[in-house]
Design a binder for these strands. Structure first.
Lengths: 247, 247
DNA sequence: CGGCTGATTGATCCCGGTCAAATGAGGTGG
DNA sequence: CCACCTCATTTGACCGGGATCAATCAGCCG
């Protein structure tokens, strides 16, 4: 079973949900089945979901990076969060009439697009699954709150360091770290829009982190040279990520 | 029935939840009953919930203002959101092992403290009630996201204007507006911590709004002199508040 | 009256924004 | 293979929004 799961595109999803809630084998199988039936692909730059859309399905990311964002009139944009492999875009978002923000693909993505009726049937028969998805949703909330702190009360250097720490620790439980490096597809523009900084200043802040021997970042590869040092200047405490929840 | 509800301390709660979901009379009665059994009082300045607490009940605010916040080591504080009469602190927060943020009373508050078991029994027999509380939770998420935009991509004047617009529109559906004025118990320090500004600059920004004849604010009373003007400079669009959801 | 909290004002500084231009890295078509 | 275009990164110069420090003022309460 475990070895079978290793091959499944649903692996990161199951891995994540199991941290939230104890899942019985039949629940895992049922979810995997639902995912397998509903696999879609998206191109880099494409919007999976646009602000104002009616949501009638649940999208679970199997591979690739996306971002939630809101665009303002005058060209400004705020990235609200990133969506990483194994994470769910919008479990239960169909409960609200329309979505308040857009979700765009940063890289090519593979995802499962499970229709509302199918999803509701799934969680009705497998209640732990339903709860696990609710935990997932609540977790987006805790991350969103930490981002508010980041944007409101941290200086540029702390802010950027914090976001790097967070992404690094979120990639770890789904097995996307390779030692102290990871694939890092964000442009500096993306990082600027996520941290509320200008591209120019973001660039200078990255250089500061590089010259402090904390990170190296080039050709879409991030290497954390000194994780503890980075966490220290970011005032990073990972508890809000609930990486090791005891069910 | 309606006239009876008018007298009930649960009135703002019912009013809010009915916007989210159609509620049957027996559901309203059941909720009212649960609230009546569980009424508590809190003093101004008191923390109802502290970061790191295990949550094992659901707190529904009947009157008074609170704020969610996170405190940083060095004395900095970020207010994440306000909790107004009729709103629920933490429906379903018990699904996560510990809470990531604190909730403090700004004014004296009256609230219902419904134990987890009681709450779960309530929503099990009355499913629309459960869904309405989930909508409430999702709504906190949409507000949190709008705050990220506020903190990340708006200038001081827009930011403060935006938060005033939001509070004003959130008070409206629970009947806490009196024409173009409302009770406004926040200190300038609270507003500064909510907008990510310094107290000094917040004070100057308020003066700017006053001299532009958009608001007047003194002795804990806010009067909006020109709501449309205020919305215009805030780039305020209330859709994220889902004030008129069609169930 | 003294002490406290919150609002206000003034002076100064600096973090980070803005503008503009240069450099580099693909990607594409002739 | 080169010319050319586009997009991302980088650098320099300058400016300004908002932070910081410090002092004053206004209520309020014991």
């Amino acid at each position: 079973m475990t070895s079978l799961l290793d091959q499944s595109p649903a692996r990161p999803v199951i891995q994540r949900l199991k941290v939230m809630r104890q899942l019985a084998d039949d629940e895992v199988v049922a979810l995997e089945q639902a995912i397998r039936e509903a696999i879609r692909r998206g191109r880099a730059g494409e919007d999976l979901i646009c602000e104002g859309d009616c949501i009638d399905s649940v999208r679970i990311i199997l591979s690739g990076w996306l971002c939630r964002y809101k665009a303002l009139e005058n060209g400004r944009r705020q990235i609200l969060n990133f969506v990483l492999p194994g994470e769910t875009c919008d479990a239960y978002a169909y409960l609200l009439s329309r979505t308040d923000h857009s979700i765009g693909a940063i890289t090519p993505v593979v995802y499962a697009d499970i229709k509302r009726a199918r999803f509701e049937q799934l969680i009705k028969t497998h209640t732990s699954l339903g709860e696990a998805f609710w935990c997932e949703t609540l977790l987006m909330g805790t991350i969103q709150r930490e981002w508010a702190v980041n944007l409101g009360r941290r200086m540029a250097l702390e802010r950027v360091a914090h976001i790097l720490c967070e992404l690094f620790e979120r990639l770890r439980p789904v097995g996307l770290l390779d030692g102290n490096t990871c694939s890092f597809p964000l442009t500096q523009m993306d990082l600027a829009d996520a941290t509320g900084l200008s591209v120019v200043h973001l660039n200078r802040t990255l250089q500061e982190l590089r010259s402090a021997k904390l990170i190296s970042l080039r050709e879409r590869i991030l290497r954390i040279e000194d994780l503890n040092g980075l966490k220290r200047i970011a005032l990073f405490s990972p508890t809000y990520l609930y990486l090791y929840q005891k069910h």
